[in-house]
């Protein structure tokens, strides 16, 4: 492995992965990156019984986490929420004895059914995605983490051409490389979405 490369934990949480299209395509890119430790939460913990010690140990070893999920009712899928609830425990994530997450990255990658236009004033969903992820953002900040603005794939409901997927994968490949090599991830956040296909 190349030195100075960021080692990231890739947490994937999809309640209906068997029926997904976009996420399946995106994961093909993820598998190519050996510096990600890929963890499929719904595969690991179908009973929602999370191995907290193991998860915390991994968090300590890596430089940060990518959380990749489809937006469900404007929020995180329930297992991912559960994962944060139990893993970001007092004495580990915050509190006097544990601030083990300090300066680690938290990078959301989100797939959403609605178009970008719908996530805006006047649109069907009224508020921008960042608004809906505010609790995730604040959680990260509370734990002194480095929160990166989410990378969002909008409008996946309308997805119907193979070439859209190819485009998305190409775009995603570049972004993933940046995630591990870019010195300043602020640059990443400027490229935070690809628009409707």
């Amino acid at each position: 492995m190349i030195k100075n490369m960021r080692q990231l934990l890739y947490l994937f949480a999809h309640p209906n992965f068997s029926h997904s299209v976009m996420s399946k395509a995106l994961l093909e890119e993820v598998y190519q990156h050996p510096q990600f430790l890929f963890r499929d939460l719904y595969e690991l913990y179908p009973d929602f019984h999370i191995d907290v010690a193991r998860e915390q140990q991994l968090l300590e070893e890596y430089d940060g986490i990518i959380v990749h999920f489809p937006l469900r009712w404007y929020a995180l899928p329930s297992l991912l929420k559960e994962w944060i609830d139990v893993v970001f425990a007092p004495g580990f994530a915050f509190g006097q004895r544990g601030q083990k997450l300090q300066d680690k990255f938290l990078i959301p990658i989100v797939t959403a059914g609605g178009t970008q236009a719908s996530y805006a004033a006047g649109g069907k969903n009224i508020f921008p995605i960042s608004h809906y992820l505010i609790s995730l953002e604040q959680t990260a900040k509370y734990c002194h983490m480095n929160y990166i603005e989410p990378l969002v794939f909008y409008g996946v409901h309308r997805l119907n051409q193979e070439e859209d997927l190819v485009k998305a994968r190409e775009f995603f490949r570049e972004e993933l490389t940046k995630l591990t090599t870019e010195k300043n991830l602020k640059n990443f956040s400027t490229l935070k979405f690809i628009d409707d296909f």
């Binding site: 029926h19 997904s20 299209v21 976009m22 996420s23 489809p70 959403a112 059914g113 996946v156 409901h157």
Partner: peptide, 14 residues
């Protein structure tokens, strides 16, 4: 049941 529902209501694709 899921497959049924998906057939009727279309994909979410996400």
């Amino acid at each position: 049941k899921d497959e049924d529902w998906v057939r009727k209501e279309g994909h979410w694709n996400d």
